[in-house]
């Protein structure tokens, strides 16, 4: 488990006056300045066989330059320039079994690339990564059996048929034994209050109802690891609370490891102790939210301050 009171800050200057929190430095080797303590920690975590170990992961994309002007556009008809964008630049972190981690950063910071790598969709160029002892991008089928993914903005429910039909399909896809399926379903239905919803076609559900059904769909097979990509986006206050409460419970009762990406800082505040801040493809901060809070500022203000201090904010300050 994550030691309490630890904040790991690899790149930040002593901005918040947090020197006292530098109790641990993970993967010191990427950034030099190794301490004995850091070496000890790396060793320590490996021995614990963490749920997720990501080390020096790099990923870049080739993107065609799109230009504005008319003349420029004509020229690109015959010749197009490409640029390389470094989406992930030596990203390293470790997440323990049963931990709940908020993965935050502005748009385009590299969050979704990380999630894609962790869920086996994308293969990185450099670096190593093991999740539950397996390499995500090797042997896809056997790896993805044990993970669940909720893409907040895309639905996995079939639009025109009752939700239960989508679940039955998932049962076949994951080859969930009958009994396990019924147990899981029963529990999810009661915790997420899905009762009536199961018979409703997904297209008739409200956003909040749909998100609850979505989350249940990702947990039917009882994954050890759950990725939640913006699970509360667009939800009303009641639904948000219900979703948060459920996630907490799932983590507490089943020890499901949860990685949460979100722009809603209240999600983070309610759910996670640890946050990993990523910006421009680098892990900028890895630590406990409470400790970066200064005075009475709201959590949004705190995070905005953080973004600005790292110069990763999209809007100039």
């Amino acid at each position: 488990m994550w030691p309490s009171g630890g904040i790991i800050d690899t790149a930040m200057p002593d901005y918040f006056g947090l020197t006292e929190y530098f109790t641990k430095v993970l993967h010191g080797k990427s950034y030099g300045g190794q301490t004995d303590l850091a070496r000890y920690d790396t060793y320590y975590y490996q021995e614990e066989a963490a749920m997720i170990m990501m080390e020096d992961i790099c990923k870049s994309y080739h993107v065609a330059k799109r230009t504005g002007g008319f003349k420029e556009a004509c020229r690109t008809l015959f010749h197009r320039e490409y640029e390389t964008i470094r989406a992930l630049d030596h990203v390293s972190f470790t997440i323990e079994d049963g931990e709940m981690v908020g993965y935050i950063g502005p748009n385009g910071a590299g969050k979704s690339s990380t999630i894609k790598i962790l869920s086996g969709i994308l293969t990185p160029e450099e670096g190593t990564c093991t999740v539950d002892g397996k390499v995500p991008w090797k042997d896809r089928v056997s790896y993805v059996k044990d993970i669940g993914v909720v893409f907040g903005q895309r639905t996995q429910l079939w639009w025109d048929v009752p939700v239960i039909d989508s679940y039955e399909l998932l049962k076949d896809i994951y080859k969930i034994p009958k009994e396990t399926y019924h147990n899981h379903l029963e529990e999810l239905v009661s915790l997420l209050n899905l009762g009536e919803l199961l018979k409703t076609p997904a297209r008739q559900l409200s956003l909040g109802q749909r998100m609850r059904c979505e989350i249940a769909a990702s947990l039917l097979h009882g994954p050890k690891l759950l990725f939640l990509d913006e699970p509360t986006i667009g939800l009303d206050a009641v639904s948000k609370l219900a979703v948060r409460e459920f996630i907490l419970r799932q983590n507490r009762d089943h020890g499901t490891t949860v990685i949460l990406t979100t722009h809603d800082m209240q999600d983070i505040e309610a759910l996670t102790h640890r946050i990993i801040l990523i910006g421009k493809g680098r892990v900028l901060m890895d630590g406990n939210l409470n400790q970066i809070k200064r005075g009475t500022g709201s959590i949004d203000e705190t995070v905005a301050e953080l973004y600005r201090s790292y110069e990763i904010a999209e809007v100039g300050s």
Partner: peptide, 16 residues
């Protein structure tokens, strides 16, 4: 028209 021309010019592969 301007908008369309620009858009179509962007999609050169589609044009070919």
């Amino acid at each position: 028209f301007r908008l369309r021309f620009l858009m179509n010019l962007q999609y050169r592969t589609a044009a070919w």
